[in-house]
Design a binder for these strands. Structure first.
Lengths: 132, 132
DNA sequence: CGTTGCCTTGACGCCGGTGTCAATGCCTAA
DNA sequence: TTAGGCATTGACACCGGCGTCAAGGCAACG
């Protein structure tokens, strides 16, 4: 399978596939003319990468998942290294959620503050609740 | 007040202050020698910018807040334009929280999946719960 | 032989806020 | 006068995943 074909099957670009290879994620042999030649199994690998990228993982984090697939597992997240990454990411995501939740609180507080006081006078909001 | 002094008072760098000015956020007059001369009030403006940046706003979003301060309000978020930005950001943050929460669910699901099946065999996790 | 279409490598652009370096100018104290 | 400290503008670097263009090689068909 040539790069263009794999790109189309995987729903991505040749640029992207070369980029993944450059970072050691996707493997390719070479034809006599220098063209990349891909095993069918690489399609699965590319799917895994795309899926994890979409979930917010970085290429570096994805490596263990790919290695896990190559080791013959039917899914990439069943190996210890992958699990470790999943744990880290989970913690990270929890952290983000916490921060965003705090931020949300502050935003709502500021909105309340802004809506209660000056908008009662300027009547700029149709949903003003306070009584002058 | 010269730029170095303001930078120190605001806890940031001269580079940063020039950048803010370049984007119309901070105002400065000029001395005869071309040095920037800052009003005392700009310190408050810089505080506002830093605070909002830290909260995840972009410089563009921050402009209404600064304008609100310059209009004489004691806080930058009481003006309609600021409120609008706050609303947008709140919705945006809610979206992020939702996405992250979904992602969190998927991560936990994958962790469970990985912990239940293969780690029962390899005994790599001290917290294995399943019975072979 | 020319065109078309695939492939190759290499390199710049983007986004956003800032660090950092360069080359140069002004001011002040010794 | 000179050194040193502050100022000026301009420009590159970073991060990460990829778009996109350039300049060229190879294959197949007319």
């Amino acid at each position: 399978m040539l790069i263009g074909e794999l790109a189309e099957k995987a729903g991505t670009s040749t640029r992207t596939l070369r980029y993944y290879e450059q970072h050691g994620l996707v493997h390719a042999g070479r034809d006599a003319n220098g063209y990349r030649q891909y095993e069918d199994a690489e399609l699965r690998v590319v799917y895994e990468i795309r899926s994890l990228l979409a979930a917010g993982f970085g290429l570096e984090d994805i490596k263990p998942f790919v290695a896990c697939l190559r080791a013959g597992n039917e899914s990439g997240h069943v190996c210890p290294d992958s699990v470790e990454v999943l744990r880290r990411k989970l913690a990270e995501v929890d952290g983000y959620i916490g921060q965003l939740t705090d931020l949300r609180q502050r935003l709502r507080a500021q909105l309340n503050e802004a809506v209660e006081e000056p908008l009662c006078q300027t009547m700029l909001s149709p949903t003003t609740i306070c009584q002058p």
